[in-house]
Design a protein around this nucleic acid. Structure first.
Lengths: 180, 180
DNA sequence: AAACCCATGTAAAGCGTTACATGATTCA
DNA sequence: TGAATCATGTAACGCTTTACATGGGTTT
């Protein structure tokens, strides 16, 4: 089983979810398209690591609510003990920033400013998610055995990274401002 | 052509390189294995965006030194104008951190401490690369038209991110220290 | 009226990793 | 003697994206 399988189990151990809901929650953990998620959930069900319950809805298509099983919880816990694979970043912006010396000043500034705006927007999104979490769960967020703990520390991490990206962009813009 | 192609062109526009050399330089830009790089270089040659020169060596296998062509430079410059795709992070550690509330305190601390050590080591590696760059190129690094500029700003970014990761790990460790 | 949200699925194509293949030199 | 570095290439497999497919309800 691949990383995505464990990401799904990590989400389901907090609460039962539909595939559709999982797709959105995965965005901060291990982004994936629905075309990858639905077949994987079927595989996880075949292994008896998850079960599902068909839920009828009015005015909406039916959905399957998946829950983790005891054996699913066991394999997740076993996997947690193993050393994580090194992270991989794939970021086209970095390639463009690397080659920024080739372009004229206007295009160079545009590249960095659009990155800056993007991360300012991400920062405010992440801040409002954290605010909501804080309102809903309060002090529980900081308790290391709370199911909210993992999500909380990850969003705090995102916030730090967003801010650092913003500061870096501003630093680069200052360099681009300089006449030679 | 995919992002990796442009990463290769961005490297070659600074100086001619062998496939072997490109693989190492790609680590900070768009990590790839040699099995992906060599066939791509052949494709780039078929499109006349690069050329190569066979170089005999004593006591070492022959190598091909690739150079970018004028048309290669043109397609690179055109690509630079377009908006970068949003970055994708794939980091198993994040999944494990998300599920950290499931494990006991010892395993949780171990997960974070190993991440902390990893980034401390990365930080010192990146710092020494920057030190070397500073010694070799000095003030040129900060000139926006210098071929070194892109590499310089990317390493500065890495340094910031490394430090932020370290600070975050230490913050999480403090939370894990807390008795409830 | 068009766009977006909810909700699930399959198929094909593209991207990336692992394994197979070779071989001399240098360092511990 | 065994591991690491230099140096290039192909083949098979697995992961990810894009496209195909459907359809009612809500918002602009």
């Amino acid at each position: 089983m691949n990383s995505l399988s464990y990401a799904l189990l990590s989400l389901l151990v907090r609460k039962p979810c539909s595939g559709y809901e999982l797709r959105m929650l995965l965005d901060v953990l291990w982004p994936a398209k629905h075309s990858q998620i639905y077949p994987l959930l079927t595989k996880l069900k075949d292994k008896d690591w998850v079960t599902f319950e068909q839920v009828q809805q009015k005015g909406r298509p039916d959905k399957k609510i998946y829950s983790i099983t005891d054996s699913g919880k066991d394999v997740l816990k076993d996997w947690l003990k193993t050393e994580p694979e090194p992270p991989i970043q794939r970021d086209e912006f970095l390639i463009k920033a690397y080659a920024i010396w080739l372009t004229d000043e206007r295009k160079g500034k545009k590249l960095i400013m659009e990155r800056l705006e993007r991360y300012k927007s991400l920062l405010s999104q992440h801040e409002s998610v954290l605010k909501e979490m804080e309102e809903e769960f309060g002090g529980d967020l900081r308790k290391k055995t709370s199911p909210q703990f993992g999500r909380f520390i990850l969003f705090k991490r995102r916030l730090r990274m967003d801010k650092e990206e913003i500061d870096w962009c501003e630093w680069v813009l200052e360099l681009l401002e300089q006449v030679e």
